[in-house]
Design a protein around this nucleic acid. Structure first.
Lengths: 325, 325
DNA sequence: TTTTTTACGCGAAACGATTCGTTTTCAGGG
DNA sequence: CCCTGAAAACGAATCGTTTCGCGTAAAAAA
């Protein structure tokens, strides 16, 4: 592999001149030409490691999230990646599979990998663990979808409570009084907020809260599948189910189909995410749409501003979701 | 930021001893302890850039694919990533959005980023472009799902032709004689192979080929949506549709729902990928299942072997798909 | 103890870029 | 024809590791 030294020798100039040329500085036309030729002849390419050692920048950002198998996350990633790449950054992904140990390890790993910044969709990390890893390293972090309480970093969130309240209110307006909710574990912020919205809708409409109608579990197919069976087995089963996650929704629908329960005639289901899949159902499933594109774009833009040296105090935004039916 | 030099000074040993300690070499117990303490006291962490400069290894592998918004790809990625991470590699993703220019650029970019190896799901790159970028760089590449003709690199593929033939044969056995196929552009290897399987099934069953029943388009929702409307508008519409991609399938189903066409009573649809979504339909959509987990795992394992110095000639494997209904 | 073997520690030289302070080059004006 | 000042080139130092050959201290054998 040719080095900058080889190029300099062949072009008959100094290393620093070649470096200047590479990085877009002013170079005398004659030198410019001979450097260009030398680079072509030697098939020279900048060694990224040497450059990063000198500049202490890698032009890479880490993305830490539970998984990319869930469309909501992969959509956010797609939007993120586009913006970052246009600005010359590449993305290093880590999926921690909703495992607390992995979440901590990968966070650590990512930071020590030399990323310039981090986009982080947290789940179980505590503020203490967070600070310990970040320590005095100057790695800006933008939190996405969820924010760790007590952590001092930007956060791009959605209005879970409001959206959930609207969804449940819509069910109530349609005449439902026994509405079940199947949601994620209480340790996850979005799950808590969505249940809060559910409760608010009940309260605003004077419907008493029935503990047996709220189910918490992992954000996976099985939770929806089992949850549906459980609900249908109740003495007084619900007439509607508010499913707060796409995998859960798929589980619910599958269980209903297998039992011959017609949706929405026998039970109404209100979903969350995965609009295109829900809209292919007959009839289309009503669903809370989260603006994945906007979430991703915003997070990327905020991180880029930090990378460019913006030292303002951390900000938080709540993006609006909308109901589709 | 503390450097190895600071640690050495504080621990009262030489840099090389510290380096040895860090990299798991034998160190005298007394030194071991003082180095450990110095590292803790200084909160020292290895500078990844300096290390990579010296070793010319980044412990990162690039993943180049069309997009992560399609579940088939994101599932493969998830499997890949798991294996790679267990072996201490992190993954740098690039999505080229099915754009030929981007595909070339990102390929180039990824290679010059200093990845140790590359996992590549190609679409439009030619063998010449490939060789020019790889040049004499020693970056092992494993191709996934598709292989560029003439490129000398490992490839992990599926048996598209066979699976498609089986799917279409199944439709024929169910009594269908007019079977449409909606598929990707002819430039994509998997699309060609799936059509080959379709043709073989027709031929084996003595059904004449009708050109108007085969539609090629981008691998997106709109292709399925428009394709369905087009097919239903024919003088002699098909009684079954073989949809060779998940986005296309979603488009087909959505169009059918909007037109009030019942699936499978009015038209039968056979899908590809996205088993969990298809199985929540009423009744479940028959579908070709591709072993995403196995594809991802295999590709990762093959790449790791290359990274460990395996210099055997390139290999190709065709993993078996299965029909689910 | 002395000798032989083994194990570790040491110091300095890379790795390949960028950067900084200094020197050279080259127009244009006097 | 020389002088001047800005523009560009130069050379050396630097970033923080790993590595390599050699030397010395500890452990084992005599």
């Amino acid at each position: 592999m040719a080095t900058i030294k080889d190029v300099a020798r062949m072009a008959g100039v100094s290393q620093s001149t070649v470096s200047k040329y590479i990085n877009g500085g002013q170079v005398r036309p004659a030198n410019l030409e001979s450097i260009r030729q030398a680079i072509a002849a030697l098939d020279y390419r900048v060694n990224p490691f040497a450059r990063s050692l000198k500049t202490q920048r890698s032009h890479s950002v880490g993305i830490l999230l539970p998984t990319l198998s869930v469309p909501f996350y992969s959509q956010i990633f797609t939007a993120l990646d586009k913006v970052l790449r246009e600005r010359g950054y590449h993305t290093i992904i880590s999926c921690y599979s909703s495992d607390h140990g992995l979440e901590r390890d990968y966070f650590n790993f990512l930071v020590s990998t030399g990323v310039d910044g981090l986009i982080y969709l947290p789940e179980n990390l505590t503020a203490d663990e967070f600070s310990e890893i970040i320590a005095n390293r100057s790695v800006p972090v933008v939190q996405v979808d969820r924010a760790i309480p007590g952590v001092c970093a930007d956060a791009v969130l959605t209005d879970n409570t409001e959206a959930s309240c609207q969804a449940v209110s819509h069910l109530i307006r349609s005449g439902h009084r026994r509405i079940a909710a199947i949601t994620g574990p209480g340790s996850i912020q979005t799950a808590r907020e969505r249940i809060a919205g559910y409760l608010r809708a009940l309260e605003e409409n004077g419907i008493p809260y029935d503990d047996s109608l709220v189910l918490r579990g992992e954000l996976i197919f099985a939770t929806g599948y089992q949850g549906f069976l459980h609900m249908m087995g109740l003495a007084a089963p619900p007439t509607a189910i508010f499913s707060t996650n796409s995998d859960i929704t798929i589980g619910v629908i599958t269980a209903a189909r297998e039992r011959g329960v017609n949706i929405p005639n026998d039970v109404t289901v209100f979903g969350y995410d995965c609009v295109d899949v829900c809209s292919m159902m007959t009839p289309p499933l009503p669903v809370v749409y989260q603006p994945e594109q906007e979430i991703g774009r915003t997070a990327a833009q905020w991180l880029i501003r930090r990378l460019e040296g913006d030292g303002d105090p951390p900000r938080t935004v709540r993006l609006k979701c909308s109901l589709q039916f």
